[in-house]
């Protein structure tokens, strides 16, 4: 009986002290807007992280699909060294970080804790992949890569990477544009590379489609043998479109790649007049031959 009285006393004591403190400290419930805003913020951050993750996927897909047509044989010893050079590690890392962020933010939504982290992780990853594929399909990956390349000096866009890999006269690789035909030697094209150096380019060994591509005035990649640096003179063995400087779609590039491959195969076909060309002795062509004869 006495215990019950004490308990009742304690209960009233607590109730009174709580209510008194609410009055004396003028405590009011925090506004509902604050809590709703917090929840909206968590969802927004989750959405942002998922979107950035999707963006990372779309740029990665663009980079990977772009490099399908990169003719790694012409610039690298093998596929491994090529992949090491071009794999979009930074975008893969961004994807991983963003997926982790989206798990974190989702868990901070009102009922996010009810779901197992691996389930949130899996669905965030799937959302980023699906979103990334959609963004890539409408060309967002390409635009983001190009935009970042122009805006951020430290970011190596595909354009910059292409320039790093291809503007290398010592290895017989140039990026630039055709500006005219040599009036004295009509098979020599006049070409200006992206460093502003003017070259005479011997087009004798090029396929007619390559000559057309070169003379279209679009930015192109040329590879061959540098015969002289003063004056600058290059014997061209192949012309490849430079995607960034042009408006090719990926199907055109794919067709072009097949045509180039077919053309290059002439350099190592014993019954072809091109088999005695200077091009048969340059390293990229030899690598190509090795690949085809394997």
């Amino acid at each position: 009986m006495k215990d019950m009285e004490t308990e009742n006393q304690n209960q009233n004591q607590l109730k009174d002290s709580v209510l008194n403190r609410l009055v004396s400290d003028n405590i009011c419930p925090t506004s509902k807007t604050w809590f709703v805003s917090y929840d909206i913020l968590a969802w927004t951050l989750w959405l942002t992280a998922t979107l950035v993750g999707a963006l990372a996927v779309s740029v990665s897909l663009f980079v990977l699909s772009y490099h399908q047509y990169a003719f790694y044989e012409l610039t690298h010893d093998n596929l491994y060294t090529f992949l090491e050079d071009v794999l979009p590690i930074i975008w893969f890392s961004i994807l991983v970080v963003m997926v982790l962020f989206s798990v974190y933010y989702f868990r901070h939504t009102k009922r996010g804790y009810r779901y197992a982290p691996w389930r949130i992780l899996g669905s965030s990853l799937v959302l980023s992949l699906v979103g990334g594929l959609a963004l890539h399909t409408v060309g967002v990956g390409f635009s983001v890569d190009r935009w970042l390349g122009g805006m951020v000096s430290g970011y190596e866009s595909q354009e910059k990477m292409e320039q790093r890999l291809w503007q290398d006269p010592d290895s017989g690789r140039l990026i630039g544009e055709f500006i005219g035909v040599d009036t004295v030697f009509p098979y020599n094209a006049i070409f200006v590379d992206i460093d502003g150096v003017e070259w005479r380019i011997n087009t004798n060994d090029l396929h007619k489609d390559e000559v057309l591509e070169l003379e279209s005035g679009k930015a192109v990649r040329v590879f061959g043998q540098v015969l002289s640096k003063n004056p600058t003179y290059l014997h061209a063995c192949g012309v490849i479109p430079h995607i960034y400087g042009s408006d090719y779609d990926k199907y055109e590039i794919e067709e072009y790649r097949d045509a180039i491959k077919a053309h290059l195969s002439h350099f190592y076909s014993s019954d072809d007049e091109l088999s005695n060309s200077i091009c048969t002795k340059i390293e990229p062509i030899m690598r190509f031959r090795d690949q085809f004869t394997d």
């Binding site: 304690n10 004591q13 607590l14 002290s17 709580v18 403190r21 609410l22 405590i27 009011c28 419930p29 925090t30 506004s31 509902k32 604050w34 809590f35 009102k110 009922r111």
Partner: peptide, 20 residues
């Protein structure tokens, strides 16, 4: 216990609008 409970109820009151 009294102190903790008081804090519990004060916090509950402050956060009443967050109750789902």
């Amino acid at each position: 216990q009294m102190d903790v409970l008081q804090e519990v109820f004060i916090k509950a009151y402050k956060n009443l609008n967050s109750f789902d």
